[in-house]
């Protein structure tokens, strides 16, 4: 998609010198990243590269070993539990499978954050919820339970729930995984629309290269704990870095090896009898 103002916007999220080790494995190493305000930024990378970890750092579910995560100027990793809670109220998060509460109807799912955090009268809550559900095209399904809807619809309801409090920042964790082309098209359009209509900042974790081109103002590729590329998706195509090329073109072998590390082929097969 054409992008005219990506480099001028103020950074709203800033990672500086962030390192994180989880379960003895280095996930992020001295990572620096600035995500501009009011735009859609895609975070891409091979599986296990730490994309979801990055989101969890922004939400404060994880704390970096070193470095700082700044969101709108506040260091998320230094917030007290109470301050973290009030920070999260301005956050909309769409988890991988929607994570709707199965014992509540779609309506109650979307209404939950409003009922918990505001003192709005029930009639006003009803209007807001229906409006949000209307945005994702599921106003008619308000009375249904999540299990009565398809996976794609579940995720749309979850999106309505994430938007319920009118957050300034929306985070999407793999919003396209396992969706059929129609649902994928709908989600794609919704993310972009919501971003523009509400003037929020959106961060989308995904590995669908094709979708990113239609969706994001800029894309960031993470591998081996570093940001290896950060540019509008069109220009990423021309990036000379072999890893970026492998990722963008979906080549089976390259810097990310096809074979799991192990002894060489000869060693395994020719000396096989001696094992």
């Amino acid at each position: 998609m054409p992008d005219t103002h990506s480099q001028t916007a103020q950074p709203t999220i800033q990672f500086s010198d962030v390192s994180l080790t989880l379960g003895g494995r280095k996930i992020l190493e001295k990572l620096d990243l600035a995500i501009p305000q009011g735009q859609v930024t895609a975070i891409m990378g091979p599986s296990g590269a730490g994309k979801t970890t990055l989101l969890r750092l922004i939400t404060g579910q994880l704390k970096p070993d070193t470095g700082r995560v700044l969101v709108n100027g506040t260091a998320v990793n230094e917030l007290s539990p109470k301050a973290l809670n009030s920070y999260r109220k301005q956050l909309g998060v769409l988890l991988q499978n929607g994570a709707l509460f199965t014992d509540l109807t779609c309506f109650d799912n979307v209404a939950l954050p409003l009922r918990e955090h505001t003192n709005l009268p029930e009639s006003l809550i009803k209007n807001i919820v229906l409006l949000k559900l209307h945005t994702v095209g599921l106003r008619g399904a308000a009375h249904l339970y999540p299990r009565e809807l398809s996976g794609g619809m579940n995720r749309r309801v979850a999106m309505a729930r994430a938007m319920a409090m009118d957050p300034q920042l929306m985070l999407y964790d793999e919003p396209f995984a396992g969706l059929d082309p129609i649902s994928m098209g709908i989600s794609l359009r919704l993310i972009r629309q919501v971003n523009e209509a509400l003037g929020m900042t959106s961060i989308v974790v995904t590995h669908d290269v094709h979708e990113v081109r239609q969706l994001a103002h800029q894309a960031c590729i993470i591998a081996n704990g570093h940001v290896i590329a950060f540019a509008p998706p069109e220009t990423l195509q021309e990036d000379p870095e072999p890893l970026v090329q492998q990722f963008m073109q979906g080549l089976p072998d390259g810097p990310v090896a096809f074979h799991y590390p192990g002894p060489s082929l000869e060693a395994d097969f020719l000396d096989g009898d001696q094992h």
């Binding site: 579910q61 994570a99 199965t102």
Partner: peptide
């Protein structure tokens, strides 16, 4: 397993 507990946490509930 279905991240509902995480979702609550993220909604500051």
């Amino acid at each position: 397993a279905t991240e509902q507990l995480d979702a609550l946490d993220l909604m500051a509930i």
